[in-house]
Design a protein around this nucleic acid. Structure first.
Length: 241
DNA sequence: TGCTTGATTGTCT
DNA sequence: GACAATCAAGCAG
């Protein structure tokens, strides 16, 4: 498969502009175990320094947040609740500490690898769904967005959905952690993002408040979470419009 | 299907 | 010392 990856210029936009543009793109990790990837279906924008929900709120610049101040196109990976990691894409330019949290993807490459990493066993029923979804492609329609293809077929089995429908699950399935991957350059390293085959049309994008940031006061109400409308891999905590 | 709760550690006050 | 951009188990219905 041809490697194409988003260039630096793509990431150098204001985070609220960049976040929805990442929907339908493919997050890829070429690890020593093999390659795994998923289509991005849910994101959240964190707009430092004015955004109280952002780790860079108030311009707070610490060892942890330092990478948020880097040029667009770097990876910001942090640990949460002592047990999970969250993967973010640094947005905008050097000195502008903005980032996009990847909340959910739909598995594309390496589903067996992801299942193993997640400790989930996939049976025949699940794999049948998989073949239907990715196997035979051509239905005679004009080229369409792969990410929207999920809306046209039967809802995926729970075991497959559970692989990557949440930010901590995405990191586990793609084997991403803070120690090895924080600060990676998405334009050069083994973690990168392929552009959407076809951009997701505006009417297929839903938006609403971000998840689990009650501490952020009025900022918690900003509709800065974006997802592919009705997509089955969007995280459970707020699938509704 | 939906709610409640405990796990566990880096980070900042 | 408090708490967090989460997850999964357990239980009720």
């Amino acid at each position: 498969m041809m490697e194409s990856r988003l260039p630096r210029s793509f990431y150098r936009r204001p985070v609220l502009e960049l976040a929805p543009m990442l929907l339908g793109a493919e997050l890829v990790h070429e690890s020593p175990d093999g390659t795994a990837s998923g289509l991005i279906v849910e994101v959240e924008a964190y707009k430092g320094p004015e955004d109280r929900a952002a780790h860079s709120y108030g311009g707070r610049r610490t060892e942890r947040t330092e990478i948020m101040f880097a040029d667009g196109g770097h990876a910001y990976v942090f640990q949460i609740y002592g047990v999970h990691y969250c993967f973010n894409v640094v947005a905008a330019r050097l000195g502008e500490p903005e980032a996009v949290l990847i909340r959910a993807v739909e598995p594309v490459l390496g589903i067996d690898l992801m299942a193993r990493r997640r400790g989930i066993v996939l049976g025949d029923k699940e794999l049948d769904w998989w073949r239907l979804r990715w196997g035979s492609g051509g239905t005679g329609h004009p080229p369409r967005s792969p990410v929207l293809g999920a809306l046209e077929i039967k809802r995926p089995p729970a075991a497959i959905r559970r692989l990557t429908d949440g930010p901590g699950k995405v990191c586990r399935a793609l084997d991403i952690d803070r120690h090895r991957h924080n600060g990676l350059d998405l334009t050069r390293d083994k973690i990168y993002i392929r552009p959407p085959a076809v951009p997701v049309p505006p009417q297929a994008i839903a938006r609403g408040p971000r998840v689990n940031i009650d501490y952020a006061g009025p900022w918690a109400d900003k509709p800065w979470r974006f997802w592919v409308r009705d997509h089955p891999f969007v995280s459970v905590s707020g699938r509704r419009t």
